[in-house]
Amino acid sequence: MELINAALVGVLMASSVYLMLSRNLVRFVLGLALLSHAANLLIFTGGGITSSITSRAADGATAESDSLAQALILTAIVISFSLFTFALVLAFRTYETLETVDTDAMRAAEPEPSGHPGRTDPSGRPS
């Protein structure tokens, strides 16, 4: 079971990195969501998986499964969910204002130096 979970964490991490390397902002945000899932699953696996429900911190090394790890994940899920929502809103607002989701075309904060043939192709719109 732990091996399967570990492999799943690896797959999730790899897919999230693949998505985050995209220039499309929406894909990036989805990659971010996958990344936090991978982290949560990793904590879950790190806490040990059995049907017992005692906290290792309180009980020494007797119990193999750790409910504290699951409490941590619960906190982390709430936080990452809210941040994910915020990131989606931010991405949408950015799309409305800058009219692109191509991160290479977003040069509002750091304009190309003058004289440089800037990238003006606004080809990041979702089709």
């Binding site: 982290a39 949560n40 990793l42 904590i43 696996t45 040990g48 790890a69 941590l72």
Partner: peptide, 10 residues
């Protein structure tokens, strides 16, 4: 968070 998870596991 990943680092913390691993450290806790250890």
């Amino acid at each position: 968070l990943t680092g913390i998870g691993l450290l806790y596991g250890l």
